[in-house]
Amino acid sequence: MNRYDGFREFVLARQQALTRSAYLLTGDAHLAEDLLQSVLLKVANHWPRLVRHGTPEAYTRKAMINQYISWRRRKQLESPNTDPPERGHAHDDATIDRIILRQALARLTPRQRAVIVLRFYEDLSERETAEILGCSLGTVKSQTHHALGRLRTLAPELSQLFAEIEEVRR
């Protein structure tokens, strides 16, 4: 039996979702690839233990969040362009909204951004998010509240979207 049995299958099955999460965290496709690659190296090193405990995906997500926060602390990630997009181009409103949201997400603290990605893009529960982030349920709730408030301030033109998110949370 090979120590990496099942690792390739795990990566193939979860790569798209993990890449999406990495992109939402970093806001840059190349950095997302770097983030995921560095995390998958760690996962591969711990693969036999992860399989025994049945937690490869949870470990991978937690490692990705921790690596992202570590990168941000070291200031290895460049600040993305935060200038609002020009409305004169031939983009539809949904595209403009996604650009504005991505730019607003980039201005959140790493923890706030991680909470938003896990809760609303990955559709994890507050409890699952707390487990991945290694914090309390109350911390997830307060980080979510503060992040949504900051997003409202940073992107007031998306107030309808944030109202819908608040409605889902209730």
Rank of each mutant, 00 (worst) to 15 (best):
L77E: 03
L12V: 15
H91T: 13
A104W: 01
P85Y: 07
R3A: 15
Q103W: 11
S136G: 13
L12S: 15
L25H: 02
S159F: 06
E166I: 02
S38R: 05
S21Y: 08
L24A: 09
A155R: 02
L12M: 14
H146P: 03
I116H: 00
E167Y: 09
R111A: 11
S79F: 11
G27Q: 07
R170P: 03
R20F: 08
A29K: 15
Q67W: 09
F120C: 02
V168K: 13
G6W: 11
T26W: 06
L31V: 08
A13E: 14
L154V: 01
Q103I: 09
A63H: 03
Y4I: 09
F120D: 05
D93H: 09
Q103N: 13
R102Y: 08
Q103D: 13
T144K: 03
Q112F: 00
L25D: 01
L161C: 05
H91F: 15
P56G: 07
A104N: 00
I65N: 01
R14N: 14
I116F: 01
L50I: 07
E157L: 07
L41S: 12
E166V: 02
R72S: 10
I96T: 12
E128M: 04
A44N: 05
R102W: 08
R87C: 11
T82I: 14
R107S: 05
H146M: 12
Q160K: 10
T144R: 04
T82H: 10
